[in-house]
Design a protein around this nucleic acid. Structure first.
Lengths: 337, 337
DNA sequence: TTGTAGGCGTTATCAG
DNA sequence: CTGATAACGCCTACAA
């Protein structure tokens, strides 16, 4: 273990003082160019590297942002983190990642951890269990740490938000289905207590309304966002209506499960049932048939979050900013007539 | 912005001193239970939370581990990070994530960033450009920060390693193909300068040898690990041999591209060409046909990395540990005769 | 069992 | 323009 070189070492080397070295390295205006140059050269030569910890302690800013996601290995979240990380890293910020596993308790613990680590901001997509439970989120805000919610949010918390417009996503998908064929459009949606699914479902209803089609509750079923649940959901739906019909799923996983069941029964897609999913999961373009879906621009979303944070660091007191991104419909074979 | 509660506040509150409070909170043996209890209660009541930064600076341990991956949104890597994070978080460690974008320069920069942040260890899967360039890796080791390489490694660096046995993976896949039909087995592999692809290819050759089949270089082609490259690769391969044959791809993406081209030419899989990919990317089980592949146990891999790090923190001087995990063959329709 | 004092490496304030 | 000094919050010899 080599001992690290500090600004004191540089100061000694140059017969000056740590204060001057510090200022020179921070490009302080009241330091002569000549001194700055000498200091930088010495620093380089001695292999100096600033101790972020000490700097952070003194400045009260750790140059670090914490992110809490339900699951770090879900493509949507890892993609958001990737975008966020790339933007923040460029500006000298680090990103600490935490997972709530969709559990409230773990989420609370994550927040404590991040606050202890003195992060400059916390970015979060809340867990399923956190719906309505928001004292931990309020705590962050009151305590003065900038908070930014994305995707799954709690609308009672006064904090920055970056969201995909899920109403528009649901509307786009459903309007597209309606445009294909004059048949009923069913919907497999996930828990409406989560804003994202509620909004997508709202968009579904909205599109029906716009085309003056009746909203038929029997054609809508709530299922988990998983392949298995989609499979079972489809099974139930087929007891309530028969092909041909259209189907909007609020998640690609659900859509895939539904397709599996339909294929088992030898129905053809899109002829018998035309389908749109949601999220543009990787490889959905290579399913049989390729799955139409709503792209959430996850990487851009992450980059947008990063940009907003940098903005927030500059103006800490401005009111919360709400950023609304538009999703995009990707029409592939599964929905085309 | 509320001012934070410090151990001094607690000390004052209890008419004692910060040292005692610190010791009590750290469960120091030389503190009476009574005092500990009082301190803990007061801490709770005043809403004290330890400042990790200050603690880290003092102790020289930040309770933080840095991870550098080529791309954070690739399923394999996000899955490893997820597993790693879950293990380390449990033990009070945080995980900082960095991306090299497969660029050497960025990787060097990432390492500097992490060292500045005083991380307790660095976990890395090296970039494509880093092959043979390892001064930055040696620097980490010499400087005394534990280094752990996984997946893509540099074998000249003396550091812990956690790897999937890619030779075995390649062997498993190829042996399985050989077992299906007595036809030639082709191979689309990616750059052999990366250990992972080199080993998978070695495994391919090994399996041929074991069955006393000739290794025919013309049936092997180097392509990028992407769908497009797999598509083009298949096109070229078909100029050199005709179905029926078997195909081992060192990546699922390559395999998917190959399948796409074959399907375009109306060849059937697995009848005309039977295929095995590599990585078990999400949704490969739902392709047409479902793709046989090698599962890399990425989450377990991440957890294993975490466990090894915790071990390493306890015994800093023991020689590098090399952990070798076995992959698993998942036989799905694409390869079954 | 507890208190005192000093320092981890940096930066901000205040002089000069 | 630069130097001295004191913090940031915590931990740990050493002393009592």
């Amino acid at each position: 273990m080599q001992k690290k070189v500090t600004i004191h070492d540089i100061a000694e080397h140059l017969q000056t003082t740590a204060a001057t070295v510090s200022r020179a390295l921070n490009d302080h205006p009241a330091i002569s160019e000549r001194t700055k140059k000498k200091v930088r050269e010495a620093a380089q030569q001695l292999g100096y590297e600033r101790n972020q910890l000490a700097s952070a302690l003194r400045k009260g800013s750790s140059q670090t942002v914490g992110v809490i996601v339900p699951l770090a290995d879900r493509n949507f979240f890892s993609s958001v983190v990737s975008g966020l990380q790339s933007v923040l890293n460029e500006q000298g910020y680090n990103v600490i990642i935490c997972q709530s596993n969709d559990q409230l308790e773990k989420e609370i613990q994550n927040i404590d951890t991040l606050l202890n680590a003195q992060v400059d901001a916390i970015v979060i997509s809340i867990s399923k269990e956190s719906i309505g439970k928001n004292t931990h989120l309020h705590k962050v805000v009151e305590q003065g740490t900038p908070l930014l919610m994305f995707d799954r949010i709690d609308s009672t918390v006064k904090a920055d938000r970056v969201c995909i417009n899920d109403i528009e996503g649901g509307r786009l998908a459903t309007a597209h289905l309606l445009q294909q064929k004059d048949v009923p459009i069913a919907c497999l949606h996930s828990s409406l207590s989560l804003n994202i699914y509620k909004d997508r479902f709202k968009g579904y209803q909205l599109a029906l309304e716009e085309k003056e089609k009746a909203f038929i509750p029997e054609y809508c079923l709530q299922v988990e966002s998983s392949i298995e649940a989609g499979y079972q959901g489809m099974k139930q739906l087929l007891e309530r209506l028969s092909p041909p019909f259209g189907l909007f799923c609020t998640s690609d996983y659900t859509a895939i499960g539904a397709m599996e069941y339909l294929k088992e029964l030898k129905y053809t897609i899109p002829e018998d049932v035309h389908i749109v999913g949601y999220s543009n999961e990787p490889l959905t373009a290579y399913l049989c048939p390729p799955l139409s879906t709503i792209d959430q621009k996850s990487k851009q979303l992450g980059m947008q979050i990063g940009a907003q944070l940098l903005q927030r660091f500059k103006t800490l007191t401005t009111p919360p900013k709400i950023i609304d991104l538009l999703p995009e419909l990707l029409t592939r074979t599964s929905s085309l007539s």
